[in-house]
Design a protein around this nucleic acid. Sequence first.
DNA 1: CGATCTGTTGATGCTCATCAAATCCAGTGG
DNA 2: CCACTGGATTTGATGAGCATCAACAGATCG
Lengths: 245, 245
Amino acid sequence: MLRYLFNRLDNYQTSTPQEIDALERLTSPVRVVAKGEDIVQQQQPPNGVHILLEGWASRYKVTREGKYQTLAFLMPGDIFDLHINLIDRMDHSIVALTPCRVITIPNHRVEALYEQQPRLSHALFWSTLVDLSTLREWLVNVGSRPSAQRLAHLLCELLIRARTAGLTNDLSFELPITQRQLGEAMGITSVHMSRVMSKLRKEDMITLNDGRLEILDWEKLKEFGDFEPTYLHLDRAHPDLAKDL
Amino acid sequence: MLRYLFNRLDNYQTSTPQEIDALERLTSPVRVVAKGEDIVQQQQPPNGVHILLEGWASRYKVTREGKYQTLAFLMPGDIFDLHINLIDRMDHSIVALTPCRVITIPNHRVEALYEQQPRLSHALFWSTLVDLSTLREWLVNVGSRPSAQRLAHLLCELLIRARTAGLTNDLSFELPITQRQLGEAMGITSVHMSRVMSKLRKEDMITLNDGRLEILDWEKLKEFGDFEPTYLHLDRAHPDLAKDL
DNA sequence: CGATCTGTTGATGCTCATCAAATCCAGTGG
DNA sequence: CCACTGGATTTGATGAGCATCAACAGATCG
């Protein structure tokens, strides 16, 4: 059930069957969330740590002007809002971009996990730090790169992340996200997103059909998008992950 | 010595003299860093938790095109890179914007702190979560707001943060930051920054002389910048902090 | 099968970057 | 003490990048 999550954690350290078991026993029943529905809502008190088993989601905020800003894309195997229990109200929401299956570890059980599974806790902690450095890189992306490079950078990141979870097939993976949603992540409109996407297509870097992205020329896309995967901190267990593509 | 830090932590919970003492005993000697010099450098292994005693600094990254993107401004009392020890190399740098005085808690002593001072650890943890939600808000700012509102929003945030550390005098505080540096934080050039700044001045929202910012009309600036301080999570100890201005 | 959502393309205009030049100021060395 | 230098700020002119508005085609769905 937690296959994708542990695939990802393997990039930090290999988990033991006991640890996998310990984590599974702490979780609540699976919650099914329909596309478009909020998994976590702004203003609500945080109720625990969530793990996305299936589907894609996005963390977002809305400005007074009604503009949506996506703060992160969440894919199967992602664990989110670890350690959020010190805050009394969520300052953002998380919405299901596709039908999702989610499990939750209630706050009171998280403490037990820290005490009883320190090694696993470190791995989860590591994944939180990766989320944080990814957020920093997004700010660099939105603040400092022109839109075409911004998209190229994002697609590189999503490929690597999908790959660490075991969601890829060579250089392609399911990307069930609309151009409008991609635009909301990068601070551009869906109209401009369409133009930028077609540029990457015309230059033979990618194809995107039926919600499946295929990267045709990894080196070119990586170079064009100024993508340096060091911020994903994968080199502890697999130093060459981004190289052997 | 840690006055500003504990002022800020007071927004979460009041620390006991014993806790203040415990933290002070863990720190290394004060390090003096010249203006323009890096306090923490990209590629280096993280060497511990840092506390800024005096001066301002910025967390930043540089793109291949040579553009600087500021990820955070650090002011006296800020503690940074808590829990960073799980990552093997820094993915960004921190530079002193003014002459700075910094102390460091080495990694091996941080563990002891967690064990011996759980209550204090929670407070430090809380400040890390606030940094994280501040980063999210920066992404919203850069990705979704026009430049004048972006600046207004940033200035509101800086006032509140300076205020929680005890660095303000009514509605004014030392802001020893050039317009170029402000621009690098918001993804605009220094030329455009100058125009935007003069707009806020002309509309009688602020003055900025000799490195001191004064907010002339808090309500107007807040409204204009779409500033909602909930993301700073100050309402646990002082629900009205942003209101009683 | 109409209704809605998504993606595409064209036309137009605004925001901000870029280039350039002038002013101001702090620091430096003669 | 003053000339010189380099950084910070300001203002103007021009152009690039992206938003906005609009129209349409294809896909999806109740």
